[in-house]
Design a protein around this nucleic acid. Sequence first.
DNA 1: CGCACCTCTGCTCAGATGAGCAACAATGCC
DNA 2: GGCATTGTTGCTCATCTGAGCAGAGGTGCG
Lengths: 318, 318
Amino acid sequence: MSDIDELLSIRAAELYYEENQTQDEIGVILRLTRWKVGRLLASAKANGFIRIEIVHPRARRLPIERRLRESTGLTDAIVVSSAGVSSDAELQSRTAQAAADYLTSLRPIPRTLGISWGRTLHDVSLHLKQGWAPGVNVVQINGGVSLNQRTGTAASTAVTIAHKADGSATLLPSPAIFERLETKQAMEADRTVAGVLALARNAQAYVFSAGQADANSALVDSGYLTVEQIDELVSRGAVGDVVGRYIDANGRIVDPELNERTVGIQIDQLRRAPLTIAVISGNNKHAIARAVVRNGLCTVLVTDEDTANALLQEKDTP
Amino acid sequence: MSDIDELLSIRAAELYYEENQTQDEIGVILRLTRWKVGRLLASAKANGFIRIEIVHPRARRLPIERRLRESTGLTDAIVVSSAGVSSDAELQSRTAQAAADYLTSLRPIPRTLGISWGRTLHDVSLHLKQGWAPGVNVVQINGGVSLNQRTGTAASTAVTIAHKADGSATLLPSPAIFERLETKQAMEADRTVAGVLALARNAQAYVFSAGQADANSALVDSGYLTVEQIDELVSRGAVGDVVGRYIDANGRIVDPELNERTVGIQIDQLRRAPLTIAVISGNNKHAIARAVVRNGLCTVLVTDEDTANALLQEKDTP
DNA sequence: CGCACCTCTGCTCAGATGAGCAACAATGCC
DNA sequence: GGCATTGTTGCTCATCTGAGCAGAGGTGCG
């Protein structure tokens, strides 16, 4: 397009979008026919001079969602807008809200819902509305009775989600990781625990988050792992954890021995499930989000705009 | 508006603006009539959830221009968008471009145009196109033969503007400020200088910028004033200079003695002129811009979005 | 120079949209 | 409960807008 037309398209856009003039009126002002004005406006849009942004905590980015679905094979993608967000916490809250909305609108409503625990899932539980579903059995899919003062948040997440759905919660009364394999096997042999695990394996849908492998991991906070252990895992290629299990960029278990001592459903069970909803948000979680999505660990991803864009860019340069 | 309607309006906006769906189609998706969708879209706009921005160096902000005109009594206001600007220099370049555009479109074309000098005016001269006007006599309205190495930029600004208009430049061959009043008076008595000053006083239009009163002032750079003198002026209320004369927030000359030693047209002559175009841009020039506009020193203001917003906010809380 | 080719322009026409209106529902006040 | 007031809904109609098309004008090639 010629230089003069570019300037005209900007003048037309000012009058159209900022002054609410009709294309006809703009034509009179700029001494153009209304068809020319329409074409200038279209070219301004095509050239990206017009930026339209929806500024709202609940706003989603549908075009990015579609591109994500197309490029990753996800059955669904929910991407919240990060327009006007000042902190990571706000972004995560928005994402949790979107996950709650997604759960609420799920059809058919799952009878049993497997969930992991963590800050994100807890946030999701808080955003769900009372009566979001008519009775759901919520099952914990990985161990989480905390070793330290944060006892109970894992349980409270499950209980809250179930309570708000007028349903029931089935807790997995076990630590996330055992120190000795024998203890873990003994625990799993227990009739109650085995029953919960069987229920977890047969859940119709799963909701889980994922943690970046660093010193702020919930597993460190909860006392299951030390910072040194995380460093060791990272040096062996770990990018983060999913339901308590550390994976590398290719979705493989980093430390099989550690994995054996971890209580809960296996990564492969997630991979085989028909409906697995990953809720991952925050600027430090791009790597683990990528690992989860690329390796088919989820069928639905709920995330923020920045993480989604990071995923898309990686797809462009494989 | 109800909470649920707000959320619906966001969903509608996503489909309308990001997915290019028609209001009818959105109605089917959200189970609403197309009229309801239209109203939701309108309310989303009214609530400011839809932000439309024109991203282009030549983009202007017409609504702000109008509010400026209305609240200040300016006959015209040109406000350039600061969307996507990274540096003050870029913003000033955009503003200079807009000033050049404004000059080019001026009707009737002024036969004599009085100009000051400085970085901004020089920038304007560079952005003017060859043949921007069919013959204009450009007159310098304040002294400016520089005392140091920057000799000639003042003259070159006037010459460039005149040359590009296929017109002539009349230079004021005098320093900006004399050290002794007697020398200044003797200079003004000179027939040539007196003639230039008379021409300057009778110009049909003026274009000038203004400087913030600080150590970076062009008058300091050029060696006319010391940093200490500026500090003294500031302590007496000076906010900046217009055509080489320092004024306070109320538009009054801060130091009458210094003013007497300054060569060029008086502030009052600007105030009485029918067409005076001030070009003021940059985040550090809000105070001087305010002084110029509030005290009627210009009839047309060319500025940037941030400065314009600062002026408008001040108006709200008088 | 003539011809084919391409771009741009102004048009018709159908689809999309906003203004205004009457009916209706909800609310608050007696 | 009766009634006025206010806000909401679905509509008609006029206007606005985009798609598609025919012709004008401009360009390059033989």
